[in-house]
């Protein structure tokens, strides 16, 4: 069940501008994650991090299928979702630096990225905690007939939680517009998904809720986008909820100092070959939409602006002690 996907990315029906946009957003996430990893390890930033290198196609493919007025819920591994939903590098970096100018004023941190103007409630760092919340957001959309959709990100680890089953079931019996997105990166902390589930796929378990779960190649941004597009369209047409299992791989540690000694080396190497950014880049070059040099330039441009953002982050004001007890109540 965990063999890496083999199919070539099929980009034939898309224009170069759209594809390069996907590429750029995935590189943005990759370089953000690599950059903050370095900043954490050198001790520049406080706290802890849970990273998503290698899973960029999930965040970008899904969020590209959403409208700005749609909403997402995320998890402790949420930087990619936040960037893909439109949060800026600045507001996120400032938050990681604990600054008063961060997206949560320094009170949220890595695991609670938020921007209520951009359709992202605070990431919920309790596993599966966002599943019933997303069902409730979608219930609100349905009751008010707003036409909005909620997209709920979580990992394979969430599938064993009661909150997952309760939330998915209620979304199903009420037909609410929510797309559940399981990023199956195959590891819940250090435990492989096969150790916590007897079924062959997560997707097939959804039939017990009357939901047509589908497993998608989560490292193929086009496949993810197309599946998410269908799911979002279904939800908007009143045929929700929908469920996508995006098969991918967690190449980083669970959190910052985890060296992943429990991941077999051949498995890691095999999955590294299916890097979602490399795969799209190759397709772009083969189709003549971009040269390797042009793709490198995209990366360099992103790196430069990230470095600039880090310099700005270092000089942002920290909250004062007067902020300690504010915002406890609305």
């Amino acid at each position: 069940m965990t063999n890496p996907p083999q199919a070539k990315i099929d980009i034939d029906s898309y224009e170069a501008g759209f594809l390069l946009g996907l590429y750029e957003r995935m590189v943005q996430i990759r370089e953000f994650e690599e950059g903050v990893k370095f900043l954490f390890l050198e001790g520049t930033m406080p706290g802890t991090i849970h990273q998503c290198q290698g899973q960029e196609a999930c965040a970008v493919g899904v969020c590209t299928a959403l409208e700005p007025t749609d909403w997402i819920t995320s998890t402790f591994r949420g930087h990619g979702h936040a960037l893909a939903k439109g949060l800026s590098v600045d507001e996120m970096l400032f938050e990681l630096f604990g600054a008063a100018t961060g997206c949560a004023g320094g009170k949220g941190g890595s695991m609670h990225m938020v921007n209520m103007d951009k359709g992202m409630i605070p990431s919920i760092a309790i596993v599966a905690g966002g599943v019933p919340v997303a069902a409730g957001m979608a219930l609100a959309f349905k009751m008010q007939q707003t036409g909005q959709v909620a997209a709920c990100f979580f990992g394979d680890g969430a599938i064993a939680e009661g909150a997952f089953h309760e939330g998915v079931n209620m979304a199903a019996i009420w037909d609410v517009p929510v797309v559940f997105i399981c990023e199956n990166n195959q590891y819940g902390a250090s435990t492989h998904v096969s150790k916590v589930m007897r079924a062959a796929t997560i997707a097939e378990r959804l039939s017990s809720y009357g939901i047509d779960g589908r497993r998608i190649d989560g490292n193929d941004v086009i496949a993810v986008y197309e599946a998410a597009r269908r799911a979002v369209d279904d939800c908007r047409a009143g045929r929700g909820p929908a469920f996508l299992e995006l098969l991918t791989y967690r190449r980083t540690g669970h959190s910052r100092r985890d060296a992943c000694h429990y991941q077999p080396k051949p498995e890691r190497e095999q999955w590294l070959e299916y890097d979602p950014i490399v795969r799209l880049g190759q397709a772009l070059v083969e189709a003549g939409h971009a040269t390797t040099e042009e793709l490198d330039a995209v990366r360099k441009q992103i790196l430069t602006s990230f470095d600039d953002a880090v310099e700005r982050a270092k000089t942002q004001p920290q909250p004062t002690l007067a902020d300690l007890t504010t915002h406890v109540l609305a």
Binding site: A134, A135, M137
Partner: peptide, 16 residues
């Protein structure tokens, strides 16, 4: 499903 529907309440409340 108390865990679930209290979460549903939170989500609906967050959306106004």
């Amino acid at each position: 499903a108390e865990l679930g529907f209290f979460g549903v309440g939170v989500g609906a409340a967050l959306m106004g």
